[in-house]
């Protein structure tokens, strides 16, 4: 589904974000990408949601080289890739409902579809009760859930989450990861960039470790005991 072939990424200011990255992510996989700040985790995700293009090498998305995707088709491809941004990118002057339905509106979805899908997806992340709240009235964990709801409302094939548990307490982090796990079980490929080591070690079936723009390890974790299934909603 996603394949990086000898990918290099250097930003216009000369910063080398990725160097010779070779990696593949399969359909329905849950993978944690871990590493210290500045190791290239976010840049890796940006290449997937077409915010950046490799300076060398190829990124294959749904079998297509991202370089070969014409600019006018990029938006349609982005609709298949949900993103939970590190800084959430929620609009402060819109309510929870509007922030989520916004992602449907831009795709030209019908009013009926918007009104059906928005509460449904907010229910999935446990925020139906706060549908008419503004982001300023929500806690960190709730804001994160709104961002997840917006990312999945278009039923994407890939979900990318950039530091979804950053600055959250362990209990709230657990709730967020549970939501993401649940999305993965429906067949969505979920890639989570995180440096929250305890969470990663506890839940990740596959961990890709990065350092200085390169992949230093890629291992599947075999668990003898199933990870606990938290029922927390907060």
């Amino acid at each position: 589904m996603i394949r990086f072939k000898r990918v290099h990424l250097t930003y216009p200011n000369g910063v080398r974000a990725l160097e010779n990255v070779n990696i593949e992510f399969k359909k329905g996989e849950l993978c944690f990408i871990t590493g210290p700040t500045g190791c290239g985790k976010s840049s890796l995700l940006k290449l997937i949601y077409l915010d950046e293009y490799p300076t060398r090498g190829r990124v294959l998305l749904f079998g297509k080289d991202t370089y070969d995707i014409p600019a006018h088709q990029a938006p349609y491809l982005r609709r298949k890739v949900g993103v939970v941004f590190q800084d959430f990118k929620l609009l402060p002057n819109k309510t929870v409902r509007e922030n989520v339905s916004f992602a449907l509106e831009v795709t030209g979805a019908s009013r009926y579809e918007i009104e059906r899908r928005t509460p449904q997806v907010l229910d999935q992340v446990g925020l139906l009760g706060k549908i008419d709240h503004f982001p300023a009235a929500l806690s960190g964990g709730e804001i994160q859930r709104v961002a997840i709801a917006r990312a999945i409302v278009n039923e994407p094939l890939i979900l990318l989450a950039d530091e979804p548990t950053g600055n959250l307490d362990p209990e709230t982090s657990l709730g967020i990861i549970t939501v993401l796990q649940r999305i993965q079980t429906r067949g969505t490929t979920v890639l989570i960039a995180s440096h929250d080591i305890p969470t990663v070690e506890r839940f990740a079936p596959r961990i890709v470790a990065m350092q200085d723009g390169g992949v230093v390890s890629d291992k599947a974790v075999t668990r003898t005991q199933a990870a606990p299934q938290p029922n927390e909603k907060g």
Partner: peptide
């Protein structure tokens, strides 16, 4: 600006 940027990232076309 912020809203437009978000629109682009969630799949809005330039014409939209």
């Amino acid at each position: 600006r912020a809203e437009i940027r978000t629109m682009q990232l969630v799949g809005a076309t330039s014409w939209f």
